[in-house]
Design a protein around this nucleic acid. Sequence first.
DNA 1: TCTGGCACATC
DNA 2: AGATGTGCCAG
Length: 524
Amino acid sequence: MANGGDQFGLAERPDSDCMDSPKETKQENHSYPVNSPASPQTASSQQGMEGIKVFLHDRELWTKFDEVGTEMIITKAGRRMFPSYKVKVTGLNPKTKYILLMDIVPGDDHRYKFADNKWSITGKAEPAMPGRLYVHPDSPATGAHWSRQLVSFQKLKLTNNHLDPFGHIILNSMHKYQPRLHIVKADENNGFGSKNTAFCTHVFSETAFIAVTSYQNHKITQLKIENNPFAKGFRGSDDNELHRMAKLQGKDYPVVPRSTVRQRACSTGSPFAGEGRGLRGSPEAAGSPYSCENDLSSSSPQELLSPPPTHYTLPHLQHIQQPQGYHCTKRKVEENCSPGNRQHSYKKPFTCSSPSEGESYYHPSSYPHPLANNPASGLTDSPYSSEMGQRQACMFAASEPRLDELNCTSWSYTCPLPSAMTPMEPYPPYTPHPPYSSSPQGSRLSGIAHQSSPPLGEHVAHNPYQSQSSGPSTQTSQNIHSRQLSPPLREYPRYTPSLSPPLYHTLETHTHIRCGVPEWSAAS
DNA sequence: TCTGGCACATC
DNA sequence: AGATGTGCCAG
């Protein structure tokens, strides 16, 4: 773990956005020209995505976990994440419709183990699970709607069941992951399938975690118990806890909770502790300054500023931060983003060429852009939305997700794909460092959801971004990119919710690479 | 490692 | 009051 990449974290916090965008969010006033394909940079501006800022809610809490090495339980039935992923979004055009969705991509290509009170690499990661996208139930909705209050993804669930029929996000235990937020413009002028679909991706490195079937680090257990209302029963104030435990154990005398014991044993602190995780650049980066208006409880920016935890090496988290790492990264760096932040916003606008173009590419794991999945009609009008019910969250799945190629992706809507409920196909081989060449068509699409991506970490290391963490940006999140999607999206049959469970609709997008060009098909 | 059942908590 | 979200623990 911990490795070297961490260092970067410390950077500072930038206050400025990576992009040129105005710091402020004057959402209301911006005019957002759509469709002009200009150069990427320009494009983005035109797309109106550059002024979007995302602040992680409860960033301080996330940071506490991150400093120890966040673990998220995954169960067959699906388990929520805690802390919950909630964000405050500003800079959206009040009248424009957007789709907000999340995906969770591999943080690297290693498998971890927790021994001697610390995480360490124990081997190579298993093939990435089919990537699934969790579309916020309110999608599509106007910028005014999203800006009105915190956007919560707390209902998102994680599972280790590769055949999960509920649309939960499938992860492998003992593997590191990085959640990502994608904001997709769903205007009429920007329907999916159109070349102009603009979107941006935000990654908060402090939300990286290792999936586990049972907690490994007692410190994490304690943090969960202390902060999750549903775990209140395990809090114990001293006596209470002892008595409770005794009771549970059927003993007459107080028993020391296991967790407590462990803690003491390891008391020293998290294993990670001494080494900086680096990931996090400055705390604030993430959230900061802006953090939250409303209730975002988060603390003031200043608080956030506190010095980064310097050391610690978590295997997992380390690099995660740089979501962008992949392809986009370079560009981004160069272009603008400030490195320092954890949040990187890569806003590079991007115009994708048509899919067919051909770049040779092989994305083993291309992750379809979430958008793609949606109804072609675009989330906008939402056939989708209406039908599915906007309130329902949709899951999209793709084969291996990757962060990197945002650019080259093409999205297809799979949204509600039947496949969702069906077992996934064999995953494409995990390619840590695939030749991502660009891809022609699909490629572009891949954007957001690129799943199989190589581990974030690695990239990070190489990335300029990483270090950059100190960059100027203020934003919390990093925008991985914002650009236009141009690929030909295919529209998949809409999923008819006959399936029982589904609060979530899963869309699984399978990418088949043929002739260098990926095709998206819905799993049947 | 992972699973299912449990008591306790929130919603 | 029932459904659901928690970590614990035995297996």
